[in-house]
Design a protein around this nucleic acid. Structure first.
Lengths: 157, 157
DNA sequence: AGCGATTAAATCGTGCACGATATAAATAGG
DNA sequence: CCTATTTATATCGTGCACGATTTAATCGCT
């Protein structure tokens, strides 16, 4: 009872002990985003991480697997099979760089570009559904990125 | 080049187009938390979601699978095997309710209680590593939970 | 030139997350 | 009662995430 800063025990059972944890707020909100996006992305034949790759390639085509890894903070062991599935769907092509055969370059197909264009409107739908001041959301985003950077820095040390 | 509100192009390559997305900030920060927690939880023989279950059971022992599902916003198809792995680790027991044989009740073992106690200090270490004002983090948590609730509400409609 | 170190992707095994479905127990209605 | 429905949990298949390892190409050094 000592460090109970927020006397939010209006309900008998108090609230989830987990809601006291920032990590759980992030974790559970991530799942909520995923569930919100899922039906919209299903319609385009994409999963959420696949959608992120499509967004990256829309911004800059013909990126290497390593580029994509770095931007998504994921490893090749996650992205290689994911990108192969995008290739199997006909949304991207993969080819070895002629200069350096170690490197694989990923490009959007014509179909991939169409899908990416359709996918581009999903975030706007989300913001609308959230119905929160744009400034609050921008601030939330900013603080989250700060937290991410601090965690990454702590992780490397 | 038109809609570039934030002239953050100090670097040649501009920044991730993804950092403009709240969903990606949440997604990537979730991974960063996971990576930060991992070595600390590995030492206790727990994964992150397993850790969450241990926290829940520490707060209130002998909960049903359904209780845990509801609090973590996860389904039984995720939690049943996870809890079985906790059982295999010797941290919890599972038994059918005598009154209603459909229900499975989960309790911490003595060893499980010891592990949960050790795990309890991990969030504090995290906050320390974050080195951000406690008020900012509380606000972040609050806004995230609001966003989660809005997404869940939009999902049900 | 030659060869050890580094680098880029890929492979493998484990656990999480979820849609779809199954099983079995409890409840409801006729 | 006895069958239909509902409820609680579990099973199955797919894709993501990651640690550990592998493969193959390039680099660095003498």
């Amino acid at each position: 009872m000592a460090k109970d800063l927020k006397s939010k025990e209006t309900k008998s059972e108090a609230l989830d002990p987990l809601d006291a944890f920032l990590c759980f707020a992030v974790y559970s909100t991530g799942h909520a985003f995923n569930r919100f996006y899922k039906p919209r992305l299903d319609a385009l034949g994409l999963t959420y991480p696949q959608y992120l790759v499509m967004v990256l390639l829309s911004a800059e085509d013909d990126q290497t697997v390593g580029d994509i890894c770095e931007k998504l903070f994921l490893e090749s062991n996650t992205l290689t099979p994911l990108i192969k599935r995008l290739e199997a769907s006909g949304y991207v092509t993969r080819r070895r760089d002629a200069e350096d055969e170690r490197i694989v370059r990923v490009s959007l197909t014509a179909q991939g570009k169409r899908i990416a264009k359709k996918a581009a409107c999903v975030p706007a739908q989300t913001l609308e559904a959230l119905d929160l001041p744009a400034g609050d959301l921008a601030e939330l985003r900013r603080v989250l990125i700060t937290v991410r950077e601090k965690l990454q820095a702590a992780d490397r040390s």
